[in-house]
Design a binder for these strands. Structure first.
Lengths: 293, 293
DNA sequence: CATCACTTGTGCAATTTATGCACAAGTGCA
DNA sequence: TGCACTTGTGCATAAATTGCACAAGTGATG
């Protein structure tokens, strides 16, 4: 194998500059400064030892060699671009979904078997994490994030805006009903953000000062504690549904309110892939029950 | 223009790894470590969101997508390689020659008009410099260097090993003959290296202690001083020939000796270009008279 | 079953390449 | 003459590439 290739990044700069016969225009297209283009092009010329451009009054002009080279390079790059985009058309492949952990555990994981049957060629990689995956950096194709109020800043699809209720293990409270005196007797569990128990007591009309516990934990842990009879969990009913159905949790009050929602974000780049679009559509199809209206 | 290309360096690593279905083999071909290949490939997979390889017991195996992609990418790279090598076949282009200054000024420059007629499509860029151009870093295509003794360490072509004689402006010495008493009366000019006047007096049989002047200068300046009647220059007759022919210098003794030589080095990369090979051949053709034997 | 050869994966740090900013120089036009 | 537009370059920063050393896995062999 005796093929030697020039520095490919410089070649890319050359190809763009040659198409426009302008370094500035090439810079715009590639999203870099003209200075980067100039350096790449001049470096390539020096390395190859030929003039690909000559000076023009405005911009640059291709030499005969430069024009001939461009005529060969552009189609080659087109092939590479098309082949790469062709991968996006494949219905198969791996799709990385970064999800808030409690949503991953309680909603997505139980759906995995069905997902496997419905989209057998897609390998779903589910990453439960509270860290915000950088979709622009290809850390994930799809991201499920929780917005405590309103919408997300980025374009997204609403997955769930299920109302918030208090839940406890069956038998944890007398008659499985939350009463005012309980609010100072038992641990009040929630996600570690603002104390939504204050909002709830206001809705319930309970005139009680809710103690703010000295510990913090995230929703997934708090929910597990409730399941194990260690307190009353206040949170969205989407993530409790699994344990309710299994009889591990009951709703201990009919007073609820809506605050916060889960959203699905799609990476701009990966979002063009058929496999990613399939997963997105599937997730939205299978979470319709979680959305109001 | 909506074409988007993957990171091209990673694509190159993929293509080599895919051909061999082995990261180690690809690493050998590209002259990097396997670890670089692995990172490139896995990065590309992550970015594209598809499996291009699956694990095999020994090495890696292409997935269907990977194989299909390879079948498109390899021909595109072949086109780029061939187009780039095609530039080398062009008889035109710029050729950079880095030359020791006195050789450049006295031998190459006077030949430029003939060069222009003989190779009109080649732009010769002559750089006179005592700095050693790094041929591996594309600083020059050809380099003319002086070896004070013997040969150069690198493969090279002998350009000139003309003997060393003393020269002065006509009339500077009585009867244009260098006598022993002159050696302590007039400035003895030479290149700034070891005092070759000591070698000369030994050859001439003059029992004189040659003074070592407190100044240093390079050959080109020393030669100009002699032309202007400011001393006697001792140096190789190749670089004095122009001024002799023009009557600006005469040889003032028949005693000469051989020491030192000019060599032509050719860059390995640029040396494959037709234009560079043409210049090299031309230079060797037009300097045959400077070589003994 | 243990050992070895071969292969890929990864933490960490060093090296190389790419890049932007700010200024300079050149050209054409009003 | 001044302005708009264009490319070139010193300097420094940012990003990508890379190697080293180790780890883990697989298959073959004695």
């Amino acid at each position: 194998m005796s093929r030697t290739l020039p520095p490919l990044n410089a070649l890319r700069a050359f190809e763009a500059a040659a198409r426009y016969e302008s370094f500035s225009r090439a810079a715009e297209e590639l999203g870099v400064s003209h200075s980067a283009i100039s350096r790449h092009v001049r470096g390539l010329e020096a390395r190859l030892g030929v003039h690909l451009f000559r000076d023009a009054s405005r911009g640059v002009a291709l030499t005969a060699e430069g024009a001939h080279y461009l005529a060969r390079i552009t189609p080659a790059f087109d092939v590479i671009g098309e082949a790469t985009e062709g991968l996006a058309d494949a219905p198969a492949g791996r799709v990385v979904v970064n999800s808030e952990p409690v949503f991953a555990a309680k909603i997505v994981v139980p759906l995995m078997a069905k997902f496997q049957r419905d989209l057998p060629d897609v390998e779903l990689r589910l990453v439960g994490s509270n860290d915000l995956a950088d979709l622009d950096r290809y850390e994930a194709d799809l991201a499920i994030r929780y917005a405590k109020t309103g919408r997300l800043n980025e374009p997204s699809d609403l997955l769930s805006d299920a109302p918030i209720y208090p839940f406890a293990a069956p038998g944890y409270l007398r008659d499985d009903v939350l009463r005012p005196e309980h609010l100072t007797e038992v641990p009040l569990l929630r996600d570690r953000g603002p104390n939504i128990w204050i909002d709830w007591t206001a809705h319930a009309g309970f005139d009680v000062d809710v103690p703010d516990p000295p510990w913090r934990m995230r929703a997934a842990l708090a929910l597990e504690m409730a399941v194990h009879g260690a307190g009353v969990y206040l949170g969205a009913s989407d993530v409790t549904h699994l344990d309710e159905t299994a009889g591990r949790l009951v709703r201990v009050s009919d007073v609820g309110f809506r605050q916060g929602s889960f959203h699905l974000l799609t990476s701009g780049q990966a979002g063009r892939r058929k496999a990613v679009r399939s997963v997105r559509a599937w997730l939205l199809d299978h979470t319709t029950a979680l959305r109001s209206g």
